[in-house]
Amino acid sequence: MRIAIGVLIIALLALAGTGWYSHVLAGDLQSANQIIGTLSAGIESRDAAILHLQSESAEREKSELALRVSLGEAGTEARAREVKIQRLISENETLRTWVTTALPDVVVRLQERPAFASANDYLRWVSEGNKLLVPGQSAAK
Rank of each mutant, 00 (worst) to 15 (best):
A4C: 07
G6F: 13
L8Q: 12
I9E: 14
A11Y: 07
L12M: 13
L12A: 15
L13V: 15
A14K: 13
L15C: 12
A16I: 13
A16M: 12
A16D: 08
G17K: 10
T18C: 15
T18V: 15
T18G: 15
W20T: 12
Y21F: 15
S22D: 03
H23P: 00
V24L: 10
V24S: 02
V24M: 05
L25C: 00
L25W: 00
G27R: 11
D28C: 00
D28M: 05
S31G: 07
S31D: 13
S31A: 14
Q34T: 04
I35S: 13
T38R: 03
L39V: 10
S40K: 08
G42M: 00
S45F: 05
D47A: 09
D47M: 08
A48F: 10
A49T: 13
A49W: 00
A49R: 08
A49M: 10
A49H: 01
L51S: 12
H52G: 03
L53N: 02
L53G: 00
L53R: 04
E56P: 04
S57N: 12
S57P: 00
E59C: 02
R60Q: 13
R60V: 11
R60M: 09
R60W: 07
K62W: 02
S63M: 07
A66D: 01
L67K: 04
V69I: 12
V69E: 14
L71K: 05
G72W: 05
A74N: 08
A78H: 09
R79C: 00
A80C: 02
V83C: 03
L88N: 11
E91M: 07
E93S: 09
L95Y: 06
V99Y: 05
V99N: 08
T100F: 01
T101P: 00
A102L: 08
V107K: 06
R109D: 11
L110W: 15
E112A: 13
R113L: 05
R113T: 00
P114I: 04
P114M: 03
P114R: 05
P114L: 05
A115V: 14
S118W: 02
A119K: 07
D121E: 15
Y122F: 15
L123N: 10
R124D: 14
R124S: 14
W125E: 02
S127N: 13
E128S: 12
G129V: 03
N130E: 06
N130M: 05
K131M: 13
L132K: 02
L132V: 04
P135N: 07
G136I: 11
Q137M: 13
Q137I: 05
S138A: 14
A140S: 11
